[in-house]
Amino acid sequence: MKLDQAVSARAGHEASRRTLALSAIGAIAGLVLGGYALFTAGGTTGAAVPPEDVALVNNRPILQSDFVTQTQIETGVAFRDTSQADRQHVLREMIDEELLVQRGLDVDLAASDPDVRSAMVAGVNLQVDAEVLATQPDPAALRAYYAAHAAHYAIDGSMDLRDLIAKTPAADASALVVALRASTDVDAAAARFGFADSARLGRGDNYDFGVKAKLGDALYQTAAGLRDGEVAGPISVNGVAHVLVMIRRKPPTPLGFDQARDTVWQDMQREARARVEGANLDFLRSKAEIRVAPGFSP
């Protein structure tokens, strides 16, 4: 009986030691694997500065490559030849800049500062436009685009135009038009029927774009169709009767492909940029939650 108890106690002791040994081995293996995972897992953060960085500012890295480049730019010598003081100075500057940028983000500067907003918009668009900006012009595509938009490529025309407006309640625009079409002197007819120059146009030749800007689209469109000596009117704009007299018209001069090529390429690039920027905005809209108040639409 005693022998059985002794054997049993010994077996229990051995089992206990075995359990302890295996537990210890398991713990060590776990520690090794845990340590390995801790130091190699992506996204792991710790107190130490990652080796690719020279500093962490509120966990935002300053890349060693950026620091080296900035130091070389500021000192004008290779990094290895820069002094400790130079490096300290540059690093302090970069940390200060990062702090100020972070402060700007904290106070949401983009929400209140139009310059910051413009810079951000321009920066994002520049990224989107990179492909377009690096594209080389294709002669066949240039020519096809020119052919499709030929009317757009012209040297601006000019006109010596009289814009007569009513000066008195008794002014008679219809009678003035009849008189002018009968080749009466413009100044004499205007005075006789209560009209005078609007003074919005200078006397003599004015470029088409200038006439359009000063008289507005409606009057410009009418004027652009007049030939030398022709009279148009009366045309009512905002309740004011206008009579137009074309003294001398020089119509726009169409540009040949060779003359227009630069502008064609600029226009093609502008369209291509608008396309990719629009596509980018479509993508952003599709991912965004945008709620618009009743009565408004974007």
Binding site: I25, I28, A29, V32, L33, G35, Y36, F39
Partner: peptide
């Protein structure tokens, strides 16, 4: 097992 774990850990280190 322990040696393998140590070798693995050593290589990773």
């Amino acid at each position: 097992l322990l040696l393998a774990a140590m070798a693995l850990g050593g290589a990773a280190w």
